[in-house]
Amino acid sequence: MKRTKKVTDQTIQQLIDIAARLFSENGYHDVSLEEIVQTAQLTRGAVYHHFKNKKGLFYAVFEQTHERVAEEINKVDEEIQNPWEQLIQGCLLFVQTVSKETFYRILLIDGPAVLGWQTFRELDQKHSMRLLQEQIEYLQKNGTIKKTSSAALTSALSGAINDLSLWVAEQKDKEEATKEAENIINGILNGFRK
Rank of each mutant, 00 (worst) to 15 (best):
V31K: 07
V114G: 01
E137N: 13
F62C: 04
L115G: 03
Q171N: 02
L22D: 05
Q86V: 01
S24W: 14
K126Q: 02
A113R: 15
T144F: 14
N162L: 06
V168N: 03
G111I: 09
K179D: 09
K147S: 13
Q86H: 01
D77C: 00
A156G: 05
Q81F: 04
Q81W: 07
I161D: 04
D163G: 06
Y28V: 11
K147G: 08
K6Q: 12
I109G: 01
G187L: 03
I36F: 06
E79P: 02
S32T: 06
A160Y: 09
G90C: 00
F51I: 00
S149V: 13
E134A: 13
T43H: 04
H49D: 02
G45R: 12
G90T: 03
F23L: 14
L33M: 06
L93M: 04
D30W: 08
K141A: 09
T148H: 12
S155A: 14
V7F: 11
Y59K: 11
L131C: 06
L108H: 00
Y48K: 07
Y59W: 06
D173N: 14
N82K: 14
E63I: 11
Q81I: 13
E67Q: 12
S158H: 14
A181H: 01
P83C: 11
T119E: 12
E122Y: 12
E176V: 11
A19M: 11
L115H: 05
A70S: 10
K141E: 10
Q125C: 13
K5G: 01
K5F: 13
C91H: 05
A151G: 07
R3Y: 15
V114Y: 04
I106Y: 04
T178H: 05
L15G: 01
Q125Y: 11
Q10M: 13
S149C: 05
I184F: 09
H29G: 10
E134D: 08
E72F: 15
L166D: 02
I185Y: 00
I185S: 00
G27C: 11
K179A: 04
S149A: 11
D17W: 08
I145E: 09
V7I: 15
I16N: 03
T178G: 02
D17E: 15
T97S: 00
